Amino acid sequence: MPENESWEYSLYIPNDVRAVPVCRRMIRLVLTVHGLIHLADLGELIGAELIGNAVRHTKGPAALRVRWREGTLRVGAWDADPEPPDFPGEFAEPTDAEGGRGLVVVRSCSDLWGWQPLSRFGNRGKYVWCELATA
């Protein structure tokens, strides 16, 4: 794949946990089609964590965004809640608890991550994202 080729995909989903595996499959398919199969497992993991949080912790619709630009994969999730995500502390350790470790996984697996307030179609919300560099 040429380094200067850029692309972006978005998938809008209802607030339904059944949408999480759909998002995982979409990430794998997109990365495979673009010759980035080596990023598929990690992309699926972080995408599922981000979109899973969006569906579990908000009441409105959500969206998954997968973007490739200049050798960097960005995976992000938009949701309708404008409140900042509850990021774990700087030195938080993964736990055996059933929940609460998703953003620790995202932080541990990505090169860069963060969030920003965002509006879509007149609705306020936030966009939580992370990046994986291939270089």
Results as ranks from 00 to 15, higher is better:
101 R>D: 15
101 R>S: 13
102 G>R: 04
102 G>Y: 05
102 G>E: 09
102 G>D: 08
102 G>Q: 02
102 G>P: 03
103 L>W: 14
103 L>G: 12
103 L>Y: 15
103 L>D: 05
103 L>I: 11
105 V>Y: 14
105 V>L: 13
105 V>Q: 09
105 V>A: 11
105 V>E: 06
105 V>N: 06
105 V>P: 08
106 V>K: 03
106 V>H: 07
107 R>A: 13
107 R>C: 04
107 R>H: 08
107 R>L: 01
108 S>F: 00
108 S>C: 01
109 C>I: 03
109 C>H: 09
109 C>F: 13
110 S>A: 15
110 S>Y: 09
110 S>L: 03
110 S>Q: 10
110 S>T: 14
110 S>H: 10
111 D>H: 15
111 D>A: 06
111 D>F: 05
111 D>N: 15
111 D>S: 14
112 L>T: 12
112 L>E: 12
112 L>F: 09
112 L>C: 07
112 L>W: 07
112 L>G: 03
113 W>H: 15
113 W>A: 03
113 W>L: 09
114 G>V: 08
114 G>I: 04
114 G>C: 03
114 G>Q: 06
114 G>Y: 06
115 W>Q: 11
115 W>F: 15
115 W>C: 09
116 Q>S: 14
116 Q>T: 14
117 P>W: 07
117 P>G: 09
117 P>K: 08
117 P>S: 13
118 L>H: 07
118 L>N: 10
118 L>E: 11
118 L>K: 08
118 L>S: 12
119 S>Q: 02
119 S>D: 04
119 S>H: 00
120 R>T: 02
120 R>S: 02
120 R>C: 00
120 R>W: 05
120 R>K: 07
121 F>A: 12
121 F>Q: 10
121 F>Y: 09
121 F>C: 10
121 F>N: 11
121 F>S: 14
122 G>Y: 08
122 G>M: 05
122 G>C: 04
123 N>R: 14
123 N>S: 12
123 N>C: 08
123 N>W: 08
124 R>Q: 15
124 R>N: 07
124 R>D: 11
124 R>I: 01
124 R>Y: 04
125 G>E: 02
125 G>N: 04
125 G>R: 04
125 G>Y: 01
125 G>F: 04
126 K>A: 03
126 K>P: 00
126 K>W: 02
126 K>R: 15
127 Y>S: 04
127 Y>V: 01
127 Y>R: 02
127 Y>F: 06
127 Y>N: 03
128 V>S: 10
128 V>Y: 04
128 V>E: 01
129 W>D: 00
129 W>A: 00
129 W>F: 14
131 E>M: 01
131 E>V: 01
132 L>E: 00
132 L>T: 05
132 L>Y: 03
132 L>W: 00
132 L>M: 13
133 A>R: 15
133 A>E: 08
133 A>H: 12
134 T>N: 02
134 T>H: 05
134 T>C: 09
134 T>W: 09
134 T>L: 11
